[in-house]
Every structure is written in C-alpha cells, then in structure tokens.
C-alpha cells in the first residue's frame, strides 16, 4: 500500500540508519473463558519511515496513536505482525531486524537504546547506580568489574551527576535526575540510536529544559540519532529535524520541522497545532482555534477509508470509501490525505 520505495540490503542509501517499511502490529483482543481471540487492536497499521544518521526524528500524535509501539517495534521489544526494519550497524552491515529471533537480536541491542517517560518505573529500585548503569556492560561482557565501575562513574559525569553517587539507589534522586540515570544507562554501550519515549513529558518546565539541553549535547558529542516521541509540539519543534504525525496507528504526515509547522499538509496536523495552547496570550487571542470534535477512534474498530474522516473538517465522500496512501509530495514530504494538494491549511507558525 505504501508508495515509498522498499529498499533492500543493497539499495539502502548511505545516510540512512533505520528504514521501516509496512510496519504492522496487531494486539490480539482476548475474551471469555479461555481467552479466545476475538479480534485485533490495530496498534500499528502500515507505518513506513526512514531515519537518517545523526538526525532527530520527532513523532507526535494523541495518546493511543501508536507512537510508543512504533519505537518498541523498531527496537524489537515486541514481535511484529508484518513489515521490514532495516538497520545499519556501526560496521555498516545492514540487517533486517524483523527477521531476527530474540536471541539473534541480543548482540544488536548494544547499538540501539531507549529512554523512558516514567522516571520511577524505569529504574529498578533494588539496584544501585553502579548495577543499573553497568548492567548492559555486564550483559554484553564488556570489561571487568573495575573497568565497569570506571565507565559508570564516567557516564554519570557525562549526564551531569556526581560519580560519588555510584552506590546510591534510585530513591535518592528526583525525577529529573532519575531521567539522567536512565540516559546514562542508555549510553553505556555507545549506541548509535536512542528512542526517547516522552522522555521529558513527566518533568517540570525547568528540569525538562535542562534535560533537553543534555540530550542535544550528547547528540553532538556522540553523533547520536534520536527518535523523539512527545505530545509537546513546542518541544518537538525545538529538538527535531523532521517530524512524523501519527493518528490511529498510521503516519499521517512526515515533513522537515520548519515546513510542517509553517505549512502543514494534513488536516490532522493542522488540528493538532490549533489545539495546543501557546505560552503567548496575545497570540492565542488572535489565532484561529477551532477545537477538533470528538475523540480518537477505537483502534480495534477503525473507521473505513481515511481513519481521520469522522473528525476531519474537510472530509468528502471519497474519504470514507478509500484509504489514502502515504504519498511523497513536493519538497520531499510525505502525507496521507486524498486532498493534500488542494487544501490550504494553517500552521502554528507564520
């Protein structure tokens, strides 16, 4: 269904780190006595995207739109229902992660890591910082105890924590600091890719700003590539090079950040931008803000045709009948709307 070219191991452009095609994930719905399979939650339904080396791809969308699931599939925390995930290893070898078993995946895990939203549940409370941050090294058999300890101390310094804290347990730290411990753990094996799933959403304004700066510094220092998931459009505009907008398990639009914010091509992108209140009272008063009606549909029973059509102010007869494909349009952008070229939509930024 996707109109994006499907690369193979040979044709993957040099600057692409991740190339995802036709990704699908259906979670079975079980009911009744012996948990019979009665249907599927189509959490991810045909997602295709490329992530270039060293860039930050932002992913936005309402909760339940499938942002976290995409990240988890790319890191193979879940088995996929269908699709292809090409990944360029640090030695330039290209592997299709979708074909690997859990065991075959293990050595690759050093190269891709994740940072979590909840600073409390993402750190095992019964492990010291040394054990937590050092665990990936222990698992991959990198270094002896002394080397691991030195490396952990160094990593703590890198994320702005004092190496003296190495024997403390996570309960000694605030939310923002715990987030940094999680970042140190993710960095332990020098990954090339980090998926940050709402990594600053639970933090206070001033702490979030500190941690965003840290993430950007680390990107520069270690040449990291980020998949940055958030529902904060201001944050994504600040940090991302390109942004993908998700709705009901599908990518609706992918575009370079500036273009997306100044000239969205998808009605959902426009609605999302209109909904976000800006810290600018005068601007809010003059901005046209028609709140989107209704709520995100049920992923177990998605609407026919364009999944956004029940809420779309521009919907026409065709929209409920035909599923629009993710098309590449002028300017290297991708959009999934029948009328992308005809609509003239308003962005959040002039």
């Amino acid at each position: 269904m996707s109109e994006l070219p499907i690369p193979n191991h040979a044709s993957l452009p040099d600057d692409v780190l991740f190339s995802v095609r036709g990704l699908k994930k259906y979670f079975p719905i079980q009911a009744g006595w012996l948990k019979k399979h009665v249907g599927d939650v189509k959490a991810i339904d045909d997602v295709s995207l490329d992530i270039k080396k060293g860039e930050t791809l932002g992913l936005v969308g309402e909760s339940g739109s499938g942002k976290s699931t995409v990240a988890r599939l790319m890191l193979r925390a879940y088995d996929l229902t269908d699709g292809q995930i090409l990944f360029r290893r640090s030695n330039n070898e290209i592997v299709d992660l979708s074909k690997l078993t859990d065991r075959e995946m293990r050595p690759l895990r050093a190269e891709m890591q994740m940072i979590f939203q909840d600073p409390y549940s993402s750190l095992n409370p019964r492990m010291t910082l040394l054990e937590l941050v050092g665990e990936p090294m222990v698992i991959h058999g990198v270094g002896n105890a002394g080397e691991i300890k030195d490396r952990v101390a160094e990593l703590l310094k890198v994320v702005g924590l004092r190496p003296e804290f190495i024997n403390r347990y996570p309960h000694a730290f605030s939310g923002g600091q715990r987030q940094r411990i999680g970042i140190a753990r993710a960095l332990a094996l020098n990954p090339s890719f980090i998926a940050a799933d709402e990594a600053v959403s639970a933090l206070d304004v001033s702490v979030a700003a500190q941690n965003i700066n840290l993430l950007q510094d680390l990107q520069e220092q270690f040449g990291l590539t980020y998949l940055f998931i958030t529902h904060d459009l201001g944050m994504v505009e600040h940090i991302a090079d390109r942004v993908g907008v998700m709705y009901l398990g599908r990518l609706m639009e992918v575009a370079p950040t500036e273009l997306l914010f100044s000239k969205p091509l998808h009605p959902y992108t426009e609605a999302l931008m209109a909904a976000v209140p800006q810290p600018d009272p005068r601007g809010n008063r003059t901005r046209k803000r028609v709140p989107l009606k209704g709520e995100i549909a049920n992923a177990a029973n998605p609407p026919s045709g364009c999944s956004f059509h029940p809420r779309c102010p521009y919907a026409q007869a065709k929209c409920s009948a035909e599923v629009p494909a993710l098309r590449t349009v002028a300017g290297g952008r991708q959009v999934r709307c029948h009328f992308a070229e005809e609509l003239s939509l308003v962005g959040a930024v002039a």
């Binding site: 988890r72 925390a77 995946m105 293990r106 050093a110 994740m114 549940s121 993402s122 665990e135 753990r185």
Partner: peptide, 13 residues
Amino acid sequence: EDYVLAARLSGAS
C-alpha cells in the same frame, strides 16, 4: 514495569 523492558532492551536473557 519499564525497568524490565529496559533490561530486555539491554539484551538481558
């Protein structure tokens, strides 16, 4: 718990 997922993503058996 996210920390169990984190361990898996670090390659833990």
